[in-house]
Design a protein around this nucleic acid. Structure first.
Length: 231
DNA sequence: CTGAGGATAGTCT
DNA sequence: GACTATCCTCAGA
């Protein structure tokens, strides 16, 4: 049908009448180094359509887990039933449980090169009533502040493991590069809760955003600068 | 506001 | 049996 058009221009998606249409992130966005993907996911909209309703959230905090030289990566010691999704093609989800809570990752790089980005925190954009209900009515600031809180607010669980994120259906990401998110507004720090590889600074966050998780003192100022690369 | 402690269950050795 | 890419509560400043 219109495959030729879609190959040239990314499909635009209007997720709600009141929200502007946005380009859908294609597979090629994810088929790169997880550090670039993690950095450039900041400011993008994650869209979730579930039986509870539709939610749109703006990503404000991510972490990269690398295929090479990263002992904290779940795939560092080879393939297991749990981390299988990381070894698959990029652009799909990797959902796993920790302490009886879910964490949502996006697989990056290439098949057989297990890298991923953990989505750690986001800001509510649309669907307040749904997220408030799923989060038990806690403060709006805390609905999406932490990887497992985010999963709870968006009804993300193991059933969405291996899910393709480049189709505008149940779960996907839209957005274009945000010129206001230059390197001075991006903070970089060690990853939270990771006991090994503390020398690696692979956590990225929108500096100053109240929706970012972790100790406040960590985002008092950016710890390191990061060069924006186009995509 | 911060830090400590404990609940909790899936995963791997 | 040990570990964990978490979260909540509580005590104290």
């Amino acid at each position: 049908m219109n495959e030729g058009i879609e190959a040239r221009e990314p499909a635009r998606v209007r997720v709600h009448d009141e929200l502007p249409s946005q380009p859908l992130l294609p597979v090629s966005f994810y088929a790169r180094d997880a550090r670039d993907v993690a950095r450039q996911l900041l400011g993008k909209w994650l869209v979730r359509r579930s039986r509870h309703g539709m939610c749109v959230v703006k990503i404000v905090e991510t972490e990269a887990y690398l295929a090479e030289g990263d002992p904290a990566c779940h795939a560092a010691r080879g393939k297991t039933p749990r981390n299988e999704a990381m070894f698959g093609p990029p652009g799909r989800s990797y959902v796993y449980a920790i302490h009886s809570r879910w964490c949502f990752n996006i697989v990056c790089q290439a098949e057989g090169e297990p890298a991923a980005v953990l989505i750690r925190a986001a800001e509510p954009v649309y669907g307040d009533a749904v997220m408030k209900r799923l989060r038990g009515g806690c403060r709006r600031l805390d609905w999406l502040r932490g990887p497992s809180r985010l999963c709870e607010a968006l009804a993300i669980d193991k059933r969405l493991n291996h899910w393709p994120l480049y189709r505008p259906e149940r779960l996907f990401v839209v957005g274009s590069p945000d010129p206001s998110l230059d390197e001075e507004k991006i903070g970089v720090s060690p990853r939270i809760g990771v006991t090994s590889a503390h020398d690696l600074r692979l956590r990225y966050f929108v500096d100053g955003s109240p929706y970012v998780s972790g100790p406040r003192k960590w985002h008092a100022r950016p710890i390191e600068r990061w060069t924006v690369r186009p995509h």
